[in-house]
């Protein structure tokens, strides 16, 4: 599974639309903010899941939400790394 790395896809500093017009530094800042946002909700989902598991309640939905957030966190992290300073 390969994340859409800007360096590999050649998207660094190119493209159209709002995202394309941003400088790499700004893109990195935006992705870092998104990383914090997704990370916050991932942590909240993790705590909820662990609490549900420890208290013996069915936690299938909680686990599903956690997996979605983890995937989102992973892809955001990979994209963020793609704009790392040289």
């Amino acid at each position: 599974m390969a994340a859409a790395s800007p360096s590999s896809s050649g998207a660094r500093g190119s493209g159209s639309g709002w995202w394309g017009r941003q400088s790499n530094a700004r893109k990195r800042e935006h992705l870092e903010t998104l990383l914090g946002l997704v990370g916050f909700f991932t942590l909240a989902a993790l705590v909820t899941t662990v609490w549900a598991e420890l208290s013996g309640r069915p936690a299938l939905i909680e686990v599903g939400v956690l997996v979605l957030f983890l995937a989102a966190f992973y892809f955001t992290y990979r994209s963020w790394q793609g704009y790392r300073d040289p």
Binding site: E29, E32, T33, G36, L37, V38, G39, F41, A44
Partner: peptide, 16 residues
């Protein structure tokens, strides 16, 4: 380091 991550966390907290 991680200045914008803190901003993201604050944004997440406000959305909770």
């Amino acid at each position: 380091r991680g200045k914008f991550i803190v901003l993201g966390i604050i944004l997440g907290a406000s959305m909770f």
